[in-house]
Simulated assay, not measured.
Amino acid sequence: MRTIDKRLTAKLAPVLVKRAPTITLAFDARCKSRLAVTLDNGEEVALVMPRGTVLADGDMLVADDGGFVRVVAAAEDVLVVRAVNPLTLMRAAYHLGNRHTPVEIDADHLKLEADSVLEDMLKRLGTTVTRESQPFQPETGAYGGGHKHGHDETFSEDYALAQKLYREHDHSQCGHDHDHHHHHHGHGHE
């Protein structure tokens, strides 16, 4: 059984991309670092990616024998959210983000995995929600390539950027001050 363990960052010639066997995966499977999968041609392979890797539609992977495999995002049950104005759509995005819901963002709509509770909330916010079967590719992260762990190559750069933004942030706008001489009732310290 071949093992696929690398994502190619360089561009390949279109003929090589076209010839590569494909692996069609839903979003949840594209987030897993260890997975036994079957390529679309029927070949069984082991997918062993670095932790935190989120595969996207069109990614080219390299197997341990040097062969290429192209990722295809599978169609899955999603909610497509539209609104009559940008403010309503931004409010919907805010409430989804507040729930840490993976969301794909487009200029005129949002897309998320089908969920009846979220569907109801979105309708109450004044959006139009339709259930469809489409590939789902949510945003991957505010500071770079995706979900970060302390050992990822760009983590230190991303962390430094986050700390810089935090230091530049005017905390007085948060509705609290940072005078730490106040009492924390019930916590046993001052």
Rank of each mutant, 00 (worst) to 15 (best):
D64Y: 01
V62D: 03
R124S: 08
F155W: 15
E157H: 13
R131K: 15
E168W: 06
V45K: 04
H100I: 07
G97C: 00
A142C: 09
K148V: 09
S172P: 00
C174K: 12
A75W: 11
G145L: 14
R124N: 10
E113G: 14
E104D: 03
E44P: 05
M90Y: 08
G67M: 08
P50W: 03
H176G: 01
Q173N: 14
L112Y: 02
L118G: 07
A83L: 05
R167D: 09
A93C: 11
A74Y: 11
E104Y: 08
R51F: 05
E139S: 14
L125D: 01
G150L: 14
V71Y: 01
S116L: 11
T154D: 15
V71G: 09
E76F: 10
R167Y: 01
T127M: 08
P86M: 11
D65S: 08
M90Q: 14
S116V: 11
Y94D: 12
D115I: 09
R91C: 08
N98I: 02
G175N: 02
V62Y: 04
A160F: 05
L122R: 09
N41V: 01
D40W: 03
G66F: 10
G97K: 00
E139Y: 04
V117T: 13
T130H: 08
G52S: 10
P135M: 10
V45A: 12
E43P: 07
G145Y: 13
Y94H: 12
P135F: 07
D115G: 12
Y159Q: 14
V72E: 11
V81N: 02
L89D: 02
D108P: 05
P102N: 10
E139P: 03
V54H: 02
L89Y: 00
E132C: 07
H178M: 12
